[in-house]
Amino acid sequence: MEKPEIVTDLFKKTREFLEIFKKGEEFTQDLLKENERLRYKIVQLEEEAKAVKKGLQGSPVSELQEVLRQLQEEKRALLDRFKEVEAENKDFAAKYVEVEEENNNLANLYVASYQLHSTLDFKEVLRILQEIVINLVGADRFAIMVLDEVTNELTAVLTEGMDEKRMRKIKVGEGIIGDVARTGESYIEPDAEGFKPAHDLDPVVCIPLKIKERIIGVLAIFSLLEQKSKKLSRVDYELFSMLAGHAATAIFSSKLYSVSERKLSTIQSFIDLLSGKS
C-alpha cells in the first residue's frame, strides 16, 4: 500500500515540474520574439534616421542654418567695428576738449595782448595789466614792480589786494623777486596749494617783464582767488609767458611815449620862446 502512494506522489511532482518547465519555455519563446521585434525596430529607426539626415541636406532648414552662421559672423564683425568706433569717439571727444581748451587759451591771449597794446598811456597800461591779472589769471594779491636801472632796485608801481607801503623797494638779487629780476627766469611755486611763504614778500608766481633780454620789471603774485583752487593751468603758464613779453613792451613804450611827449612839449616851448610866440 505504501509503494503506490509514493509512485503517485512522484508522478504528481513530475507533472508539476513539466508544467513549470513548459511555462519557462513559453516565457523564453516570448522573450526571443520580443527581442527579435525590437532588433527589427532598431534597424527600422536607423534607416529612418539616415533618410532624415539625407533629406535635410539642401533643405530650407540647412539654408537657414547657413544664413544664421553668416549673420553671426556679421554680428561679430559689427561688434568689432563698434568697439573701434567707440574708441575713435573717445579719441575725438578728448581732442574736442583739447581744441576747446586751446580756443580758450587763444581767446585769453588775444584779448590780453589786444588790450595791452591798445593804449600808450602808462597808467592805462597798468590798469589793463591789473585787469588781466585779476580776470584772466585769477590773482587775488599781486604787485607790478618796475626796475630802476640806476639804483638797481625794483619799485612797486601797482599793487592789488595789499598795502602799497608794504611793498618796499627790492634790490636785484634779493629774495625770490630780486632773483627773478636778476636771472630773467620765471618763478612758479611748484606746490601752490600748500604754499606757505617763508618770507613776507615770497610770491607764488613771479614773472620777469622783459624785452628780449632786457628786464624792465617783474609781476609778483602773492595769492590766487579762492575759486582758482590754488591750481595753475596750462593757460596760466601761456598767459605768464605772454605777459612777460607784451606787458614789458606795453609798459616800456608807454613810458617812452610819455617821456617823448614831455620832451616834445619842452622843445615846442623853446621854439615858441625863440620865435617870439608867447
Binding site: A107, N108, Y110, V111, A112, Y114, Q115, I128, E131, I132, N135, L136
Partner: peptide, 13 residues
C-alpha cells in the same frame, strides 16, 4: 566794467 572781460565775453559769444 572791465574792457578786457567785456572783450573776452563778447569774443566768446
Amino acid at each position: 566794467d572791465s574792457p578786457t572781460m567785456r572783450q573776452l565775453i563778447s569774443f566768446s559769444l
